[in-house]
Write a protein that binds this DNA or RNA. Structure first.
Lengths: 123, 123
DNA sequence: GTTAGTACTTACCTAAAGGAAAGCGGTTAC
DNA sequence: GTAACCGCTTTCCTTTAGGTAAGTACTAAC
């Protein structure tokens, strides 16, 4: 009983591995999380995003937005002004990532600290 | 005050983005998490890992193991038997990923459920 | 009519990840 | 000696992500 407290068993792991890989494949890439964070803060137009995420090309931005739209993280809203305004909005579903992104950030921060420590020791 | 409850502010996000990207870069790749999960369950030799992770080539396995060793997730232990036994072990540090992997797994699972649901609606 | 802005698309290129197959240096069994 | 096993390394190849630059279709202002 106590043995399994720290170590999940094999089936649990292989099942969980699939889930983890699914999650990572959705968040993968250089821009996805930056895009989600940007749109969660405020809805934006194509050019505004391009301006905020310095370095992203229109081709890549268009692809990432389509991808995020397919996964229901982002909604593409067309407003019938003249000319039409196209506004990208984060969905409520994208906010389900909140605790996951929180964990990633916390772990990433402590890991960088740890790397810094071991650099110091080596020098 | 209440406004910031759901939405982190901009600086918080750009700072956190770096952490998230750091964490993801460490976990990235087709095999890293599978490898960590495998070694957390039990220490193994090169050939045993190759057998368990069906499809991984020796070249990629060697590279991933070196990578994980550098990041202190895995320890390469050489036992002076004849011939020497080389055993790869998960470190305690690799267990700090536990809650992160748990979150990734939970989110990935519910996401796949959600995708299944929307497939049903479309058909 | 030309210029500028918006929201893209297209074509081309590069770098990195990863797969396939073979080889290599050592040991051990026959 | 030769065959097999272990722990890799090397070479070559394909796929994919992403960058650059240019172009397109529409609108609107001057």
């Amino acid at each position: 009983m106590i043995i399994n407290e720290a170590l999940p068993d094999k089936d649990e792991c292989t099942g969980s591995l699939r889930n983890v890989l699914d999650a990572l494949s959705v968040l993968n890439g250089k821009w996805k999380i930056a895009l989600i964070l940007s749109l969660v803060q405020s809805s934006k137009r194509f050019n505004e995003i391009q301006h905020e995420l310095k370095g992203i090309s229109p081709k890549v931005l268009a692809k990432e937005l389509k991808d995020l739209e397919l996964n229901d993280f982002v909604k593409r809203c067309v407003y019938p002004t003249t000319p039409v305004s196209i506004i990208y909005e984060a969905t409520d579903y994208s906010r389900t990532l909140k605790s996951l992104i929180g964990e990633l950030s916390a772990w990433g921060e402590q890991h960088r600290e740890k790397v810094k420590q071991s650099m110091r020791k080596q020098s």
